[in-house]
């Protein structure tokens, strides 16, 4: 009879143990700090919720159909904002992404600077950009377009740069070897490789931008957000229900269509 025994357990190194203890202590400290110092007035919140519940929730699920026309027009404006904004972003992002891609413009310095610019742009939430543009060009839908355009450029530029970095460089080298100039390499060696994925990401970003542009109106940058803020100020929760329904329907349709198109492209 053979003696079966379990293999020896792998030994944890002292370094790893200490590291794990430090990490858990940090996480515990973070939570203690958070829960001790945050002050939420539970009593008031619960009291308000009990008072307001019947005035808010049932009315949200009972949409005001008479507002359908206005809501539809605002939603259309939202879609227009997202469309114009993401298309602008897709166009601006292309040169920036070539700048940020390590295998295109040569130097590591250029690519690092390009990447820094793109991450700096990405750090601004869309709505903060919208605030800046509302101050700059006035409270209208075009401020929303600009906010979406700048906000999306950061993310699209980063994605585009990653796509360019992942292309098959053999094609480019082969073209270089057979005497093609820079422009020819760009048009016949690089662009055919990146086009499907660029389009796919641009369409995906349009999906994201629909969601983003639906709230820009809260700071005055047009679209359905304007109606949201009016409905909430007037405590018109039936209309809020209609708006919510419109957002859910439009976002779902565009997500679905975009997924279909992207599957076809790539």
């Amino acid at each position: 009879m053979e003696n079966y025994s379990l293999p020896p357990k792998p030994k944890n190194s002292v370094y790893k143990k200490i590291r794990n203890i430090i990490i858990s202590l940090l996480v515990i400290a973070m939570y203690v700090w958070t829960f001790v110092s945050i002050n939420i007035d539970w009593g008031r919140a619960i009291e308000r919720a009990i008072n307001n519940f019947n005035r808010v929730i049932p009315r949200l699920f009972n949409p005001d159909w008479s507002a359908t026309g206005d809501v539809a027009m605002s939603m259309l404006e939202t879609v227009f904002i997202a469309f114009a904004g993401s298309l602008m972003a897709a166009v601006i992002a292309v040169p920036l992404s070539f700048l940020a891609a390590r295998n295109m413009m040569g130097g590591v310095i250029v690519s690092t600077i390009g990447k820094w610019i793109l991450s700096a742009v990405r750090a601004f939430p869309d709505i903060i950009l919208a605030i800046l543009f509302v101050v700059a060009v006035g409270p209208n839908a075009f401020a929303g377009v600009l906010a979406i355009a700048i906000g999306s450029t950061g993310m699209l530029g980063k994605m585009f740069a990653e796509i360019i970095e992942s292309i098959d460089m053999n094609v480019v080298e082969a073209m270089e070897a057979s005497g093609a100039n820079k422009i020819q390499i760009l048009f016949y060696g690089v662009i055919p490789q990146i086009t499907p994925e660029f389009l796919s990401y641009a369409i995906y970003r349009f999906e994201v931008d629909i969601r983003a542009s639906s709230i820009l109106g809260i700071v005055g940058a047009g679209g359905i957000g304007t109606m949201i803020i009016f409905a909430s100020n007037n405590r018109n929760w039936n209309e809020m229900g209609t708006i919510l329904l419109a957002i859910i329907i439009v976002v779902t349709i565009i997500d679905f269509a975009s997924a279909k198109i992207r599957r076809k492209i790539v």
Partner: peptide, 15 residues
């Protein structure tokens, strides 16, 4: 599909 700020508007109305 519901944007975060819309949720916030509703919850501010509620709480």
């Amino acid at each position: 599909t519901i944007p975060d700020l819309v949720l916030a508007v509703i919850f501010v109305g509620l709480f």
